[in-house]
């Protein structure tokens, strides 16, 4: 009898051997840091001495006293709104259009659109394009057209930094979420389209809205999650293009502000409070967006 019962399930030891190695690493480097970060955010901690508990002081400081934090939140939201939703819609649109191509062309065009997100060190090129002297490509081009008479210092001028960061961010945002869309479009069974045509679908827009999008809703959700997560994480682009900090904090994001407190001033309590705020913002926006997408096509 006993032997028979054991055959039904897998031995706990075996399950542990499968699950534990991954989850030990995952807990140590993903979950534990979040918990530590939340804990530190309620303390005054410089990394060397024992942290003392100050409860909400760090948050009060950030929201009531620190003007640059408020500015960085604003910049982060502007960038996230541009790179998130617009980037997401671009991913969807490009994937849709690419899906209309023949297989060979499809593979090549997919590569062209995806490549920017996997080339790590392209900032050099963007710096050359937006270079502030007459040798910069954009300056050279605009001066040749006669739009401007003297070169503009693009990456040092408050007016232009944020839009430029947004453009470069969009350029490199067609990553995994874009490929997910490509896969989603290819996964739709042709017979649905044939059935749809019989039911009175007249053009490709209707086909997209009434057939394709509802079928690939699960892909849309994963894609949205990945887009939002990376949109709120903009930081390196700013540092690489506009320096640290950018002129008058024109493109200073929450991530930059976190780095400032964390690695320049060793105010780990405040830095962790920033991290916690950003963490909450990301989780909440992800849930909101998931709710929104579940309404598509209904």
């Amino acid at each position: 009898m006993k032997k028979k019962e054991r055959r039904l399930g897998t031995k706990p030891g075996t399950i542990l051997a499968f699950v534990a190695p991954y989850y030990i690493v995952f807990f140590t480097f993903t979950i534990l840091p979040v918990i530590i970060s939340i804990c530190i955010s309620f303390t005054n901690f410089n990394g060397m001495q024992k942290p003392d508990f100050v409860f909400m002081e760090n948050y009060e400081w950030l929201f009531l006293e620190d003007n640059i934090f408020i500015k960085s939140i604003g910049n982060t939201f502007i960038l996230a709104l541009i790179i998130g939703p617009i980037g997401y819609l671009l991913c969807l649109m490009f994937a849709w259009f690419i899906n209309e191509l023949r297989p060979r062309a499809r593979a090549i065009v997919t590569l062209i659109f995806y490549a920017p997100s996997i080339t790590g060190s392209m900032y050099l090129v963007w710096r050359a394009i937006f270079s502030g002297d007459a040798y910069g490509y954009l300056n050279g081009f605009l001066m040749k057209l006669g739009v401007i008479s003297s070169p503009i210092v693009w990456l040092r001028d408050e007016q232009y930094i944020l839009p430029i960061v947004a453009v470069v961010g969009l350029w490199s945002s067609l990553g995994t979420s874009f490929l997910t869309f490509i896969a989603g479009f290819q996964g739709v069974d042709r017979t649905y389209y044939e059935a749809g045509a019989l039911d009175g679908i007249k053009n490709r827009w209707q086909e997209l809205w009434y057939i394709t999008l509802p079928i690939m809703r699960p892909q849309m959700i994963l894609s949205a999650v990945l887009s939002i997560t990376s949109a709120f994480g903009v930081g390196t682009i700013v540092t690489q293009l506009a320096g640290f900090p950018s002129t008058n904090y024109a493109a200073h994001t929450v991530i930059n502000h976190l780095q400032d407190y964390g690695s320049t001033r060793y105010e780990l309590g405040i830095a962790s409070a920033i991290a916690t705020v950003l963490f909450v913002v990301m989780i909440v926006s992800n849930h909101v967006i998931r709710k929104l997408i579940s309404k598509v096509g209904n």
Binding site: P33, I228, F232, I255, A275, N286
Partner: peptide
């Protein structure tokens, strides 16, 4: 998947 690992840079260093 819903948060960027940039937010855990400091605790990761401590770990």
């Amino acid at each position: 998947l819903m948060f960027n690992t940039a937010v855990t840079a400091i605790p990761n260093f401590l770990v």
